[in-house]
């Protein structure tokens, strides 16, 4: 949890990232507060996923900083200079940031239960017995109590994504990043994943959600961010942005998707 009230849980400052000659993030500034649900929408290829991946250091930015819970991610300050953190330090930082992937990325060689227990056992040093008990509870909560020993290959997309969410929750994270969690699902499976996310939001989890589900955003999100060409174009309370978009690009985008 963020140490001081008022200080944002996630603070993104001037984030820049290029892949080759393509500049994907062009100076992103963003704050997410504890308990806030923020949805990021915008056209494909606008850098939304890269933003999430930079926050938990799956990508290192070219410039700019990210802090989570008051700690600079990936760097430490030594005598006024930034210094790259060691692998174990980055791992510790990541263990407080859950991530749910578009393509689930469940460990293919592990059962649903083993997918959920791996992080707690290896990274949080929870005893295997306790980790398994917690994992069972979480899988029951996401409605998969009957699929504990199924391998990912025999689960439907919606089931896999619910295991993915349970896997992130098992780390007891301060916040969870969702990278288009329903984009790879059959339309009829989207609801079961959104249901789980909705109840998480209701439980006060801090969530940063890249999504195309504007309906979900309107219903659950506190803040809506419109992202385009590597930048935050507009952000504000969700209802306001949808009802009265200030920027012409936002208006254009919303008109097309709504």
């Amino acid at each position: 949890m963020s140490p001081a009230t008022g200080q944002p849980m996630v603070d993104v400052l001037g984030l820049r990232k290029s892949f080759g000659r393509t500049e994907v993030l062009r100076g992103v500034d963003l704050q997410v507060h504890a308990g806030e649900v923020m949805c990021v929408v915008g056209p494909s290829g606008s850098g939304k996923s890269t933003l999430l991946r930079t926050i938990n250091w799956l990508e290192a930015p070219d410039a700019g900083l990210v802090t989570v819970g008051g700690e600079i991610i990936g760097y430490e300050l030594r005598r006024g200079r930034l210094r790259e953190r060691r692998d174990q330090e980055v791992a510790r930082q990541r263990s407080r940031i859950g991530m749910v992937f578009q393509h689930f990325n469940l460990f293919a060689n592990r059962t649903a239960l083993q997918n959920v227990t791996l992080g707690p056992v290896r990274a949080r040093r929870v005893s295997p017995v306790q980790a398994e008990q917690e994992a069972r509870d979480l899988l029951v909560q996401v409605g998969l109590g009957h699929r504990l020993h199924a391998y990912p290959g025999s689960l439907s997309g919606g089931e896999q994504q619910r295991v993915g969410i349970a896997r992130a929750l098992a780390m007891k994270p301060d916040l969870i990043l969702f990278d288009e969690p329903t984009s790879a699902l059959d339309p009829e499976r989207v609801g079961e994943v959104l249901d789980v996310m909705r109840s998480l939001a209701g439980g006060g989890m801090t969530m940063l959600v890249v999504t195309h589900e504007l309906g979900f955003a309107r219903e659950v999100a506190d803040t809506l961010v419109f992202f385009d060409e590597g930048k935050v174009v507009e952000q504000g309370p969700c209802r306001d942005v949808i009802a009265r978009p200030a920027h012409p690009r936002t208006r254009e985008f919303l008109a097309r998707v709504l």
């Binding site: 799956l58 791992a91 992937f101 469940l106 290896r122 992130a168």
Partner: peptide, 9 residues
Amino acid sequence: EAALSVGLT
């Protein structure tokens, strides 16, 4: 990436 995201080195 998923393994890293749950805090593994």
